[in-house]
Each structure stands twice: as C-alpha cells, then as structure tokens.
Design a protein around this nucleic acid. Structure first.
Lengths: 149, 149
DNA sequence: TATTGTTATACTCTATAACTATA
DNA sequence: TATAGTTATAGAGTATAACAATA
C-alpha cells in the first residue's frame, strides 16, 4: 500500500552515494581553497586544465564546460586580462576565435596541479598503498569505458 | 641537480588524485544538474541538506558552509521568499536568528535526495555489489575518523 | 540561412565594510 | 566591548536575447 508520498525506498548502494557525495564535496573544497590562493575560481581552474594540452575555439571550450558561449566571453576576458591565456585566429574558420594558455598560464597550471596533489594527500593517506591502488582502480572503472584519458 | 622550476615529482598516488578529482567533478555535475531542475544552486542544496535535521542560527549555518554571514542573509532571503525555509527567534540569544526548513523545503529535500541517488546510479552500476561495498568502505575511511556521520 | 562570437541586461553568489541591536 | 545579523556596495559567474561577421 503505497501512500501518495512514498518514502524513498533505500537501495543497497545509498550508503555509497552518500560517501561519494561527501568525498566529492571535500575534494571540491580543497580545489576551491587551492584555487582561491591563486585567485582562481573552480571554473577558471577547469579552463586552465582543459587548455593545458589543447588550443580550442570558444564554442568548444563552452561545450567542455557545459556553459553558454556568452559566459565564455567574460571568463576568457578576465583570464586574458590577467595574462593567463590568449585569443588567436582559427586557421580554418574566420568566425572562430581560438583560446590557448600563455606561458604564465601554463606555469600556473603546473604549480596548481602539484599543490592540489599535496593538499589531497592527507585524505589519501588515510589508506594504505594497496587500498590506494584499489580505490583508484574502482574510481576509474566508475568513470566508465571512456577511461582515465 | 634541480633547476629553479623543479618538475613536480610524480608520487605513487598521483593517479588516484586524478581519478578522485574527475569523479568529484562528475558527481558535482550531477548534483548541479538535479539541483537546476528545481532551480537550486549547489549552495542552496547544501543549505537544505544541513537544515534537514537541524535548526541553527545564521552564524552557525555560515560556519557549516564556510561563508560570510552577510552572504547567508541573501541566501536565506531567497530561499525564504520561495517558501523553502523560515527564520525564527533563538530561545537563548536575543541577537540570533534561527533558520529551519519549512514543510515544503523538507519535502523538496527528500525528493532531491532520491533524485540524486537515481542520477548517480549509472556511475555506481559500473561496479559489482562486492566492489560497491569496497569503494564505500574505502571512501568512508578517507573521510576520516569523523566517520560517515 | 546557420554558426561564431560579442554585447546588453539581469540575477545569483560571494566578500568587505559600516551599521543596529543585543550580550 | 564583543557578537549576531542586516544593509550597501562591488565583482565574478551564469543565462537569455539581440547583434555583427563569416560560412
């Protein structure tokens, strides 16, 4: 007899979902904090990460981030004004604008990544070496067949 | 001989850090998306989550979220205007303002949680039951001695 | 005609500083 | 004097709609 307001049927993996969400919040908090030390928002961090090994047009960057192209204009404007990235012409399409990291931006991305690794170490060090390999494998599996590329 | 710009020495758990960050981004994207379907930002979601089983004063809410109290004013204003939560007097301090979920807010929180669980299922279903128990245990260990409370 | 990018506008989120009311 | 909360203000992040230039 289900009432109109059915209580959510707790499934076997509810506990996993909760742990996943909590760990994600902690991880994002670390990312935010390290980013803030460089005056970088999470979105700006993602931009640096995406451009790390790519030169892409505005629209593609917006697709990667799941944002509107008009949002990209402001995001790229601010990062460019700080000298972290640059705009340039696209070789194949006169309408398109390419975006790519400046040397300063690339250097910052490298420093940032190292800092994130250090900042997440305490979390990870709760586990032994074998367990670390385990979680890593399992997390990568969760990310799907696209794999850790 | 280390150069002034030392290349970051890759440690054993770098791969785990990367997987953790990626999984966290995916998880937050799911949270954002489900939240957006209810016109709720990640911060508003966290507010609902915190108030789920608590009545707290503004300052305490700000502490939980790591935000300034002035930020809370706007956040609570908007959520209250939508009827999701209410302000009330604090029994022990005439200066303080308590915040708590309205019935509508509590109902939304329940619906939201169920929806998040469904939305994260595909990710989790990449693993078998035994593996799910494993990750859960390991993630909870990473969250530290504070435990999954 | 469709697509790329920018501009204009508006709203949310966030912080700092100044203020009020209570402790 | 110190603390709780709000207001004022400013800037970043986001979206929608209208526009210019190119395809």
């Amino acid at each position: 007899m289900a009432t109109p307001e059915e209580p959510p049927p707790p499934t076997a993996h509810d506990g996993l979902v909760d742990a996943l969400v909590q760990v994600s919040f902690v991880t994002m908090a670390v990312l935010s904090k390290v980013g803030a030390e460089h005056d970088l928002s999470l979105t700006q961090l993602r931009v640096l990460g995406i451009l790390r090994d790519r030169r892409v047009m505005m629209t593609r960057l917006a697709d990667f981030l799941g944002l509107e192209k008009s949002t990209m204009t402001g995001l790229v404007d601010r990062a460019a004004k700080r000298g972290l990235l640059e705009r340039g012409p696209n070789a194949h399409d006169g309408r398109a604008v390419d975006v790519f990291l400046s040397p300063a931006g690339a250097a910052l991305a490298v420093r940032f990544q190292a800092q994130v690794r250090r900042s997440l170490s305490p979390l990870i060090s709760e586990l032994g070496p074998a367990e670390q390999r385990q979680v890593r494998t399992l997390l990568e599996r969760m990310l799907g067949p696209h794999g850790p590329g």
